[in-house]
Design a protein around this nucleic acid. Structure first.
Lengths: 219, 219
DNA sequence: GCGGCGGTGACAGCCCGGTGACAGCCGACC
DNA sequence: GGTCGGCTGTCACCGGGCTGTCACCGCCGC
């Protein structure tokens, strides 16, 4: 787990850093919000321990920027102001947890661990072939950066082919995996769908035909 | 966001459930740990509000099982025992946050929301897409600066979509996260709600349909 | 030349998704 | 406690685009 501590009170900063390191956590320490934003661009932190009362760039600002940029770091906000309103406000800014000074060190460690325990869910990979990209989660296909609108069947066929780059995929194989069991095994729908797909993908061809065997993409 | 409340004190359980629902959150309520474990197998909850002092299967046990099974649910532990040692112990068991009774309801809501944010990819506090802005904390939506009045369900659906910009969200996914257990899996309510939502949002469309797959906003 | 395989265009049926109407339910307000 | 109104789930119906079928053509190998 990688943690960035942002705390302008230097002694406290060093103390937190040393304490977390003693727990086997990789820690970087900076003392103002500007440095924090720089560091966040340079390395992927799991947890950000953030003092709210920072000079110049406040903890709230850093927190908001983290959320805006969609950074994966979870934010643990430290503050002297422990009123309910402040706490709620901080959480709504995008902080993931809140701790009021003075705090007990074991609790800080436990909360940092809790935040770092689970990182985001694994993202399904984007399939690529030449200048064609297929994103399964977004259900989008682009060619040279321009979106290509595909029907569900066309999309499924392309995904199946791009998922097996360089391999020859037979029409029977496509029927089995892309179509359901109701598909007529003597149908010509595979070649029709492939024709439409090729037409939408344009030139140069992404999918080649291997006579008597099937189709191939990528490689 | 979908929440499971586990609280053996029935009146308190119902009060929490009703209060969260009023905030547009899909809530299921059970009154013991055994039921909680069953429910957790049946539906993907985002947040678990868990009383620590449960009969038979304790909150600690439930919490441990959640962590062991690698369930995506975040745990907010409720307890009467507010000593530091207890809090640290709870967090080490896998709880993600801690609240001591008696608590203020706005803080419970804020913490549940914060945990719900964490269960997905990090989400900025205000969701935007084109000229539409959605503020989860204020429960407001504006289009081109003009307020749009949405019902709780419509709001929750829009928030779920805007929180996953560019991703295709299936009707099943919406049913699981926006509706609670009472939802009929064969219902047409999702498309009806989406129709009403689109009508209120007006032109140009914010939400697009991906045939056979689901809906997408943003991107 | 001819046979077989694969590509292409036209066409029609069908399924999916959108829409409007309606009813039950619940909370608010009187 | 009664009534009203908004929210939400169900249903029936409609329209459009997807997709499977078919006929035909071109190409390649024999």
């Amino acid at each position: 787990m990688r943690v960035l501590v942002v705390e302008d009170h230097e002694l406290l900063a060093r103390t937190i850093g040393a304490g977390l390191r003693r727990e086997g956590i990789a820690v970087d320490v900076v003392t103002d919000g500007g440095q924090a934003l720089e560091r966040l661009d340079l390395a992927p932190y799991d947890v950000l321990v953030l003092d709210r009362d920072l000079p110049i760039v406040s903890g709230d600002d850093v927190c908001r920027r983290v959320a805006e940029r969609g950074l994966p770091a979870r934010v643990l906000m430290l503050t002297a102001a422990g009123t309910l309103a402040d706490r709620v406000h901080g959480l709504d800014l995008g902080a993931d947890d809140y701790l009021t000074k003075p705090f007990d060190f074991p609790e800080l460690v436990a909360r940092v661990r809790a935040l770092g325990r689970r990182s985001g869910p694994p993202v399904p990979p984007v399939l690529r072939c030449a200048d064609v990209e297929l994103d399964p989660a977004r259900r989008t296909v682009t060619r040279a950066g321009r979106p290509v609108a595909l029907s569900p069947k066309e999309f499924a066929v392309l995904a199946h082919l791009l998922g097996r780059p360089g391999l020859v995929v037979s029409a029977e194989d496509l029927l089995e995996h892309v179509w359901d069991e109701a598909a007529n095994p003597f149908t010509t729908t595979v070649k029709t769908t492939l024709g439409r797909l090729r037409a939408k993908l344009g030139e140069p061809p992404i999918i080649t035909t291997v006579r008597d065997s099937g189709y191939r993409a990528g490689d």
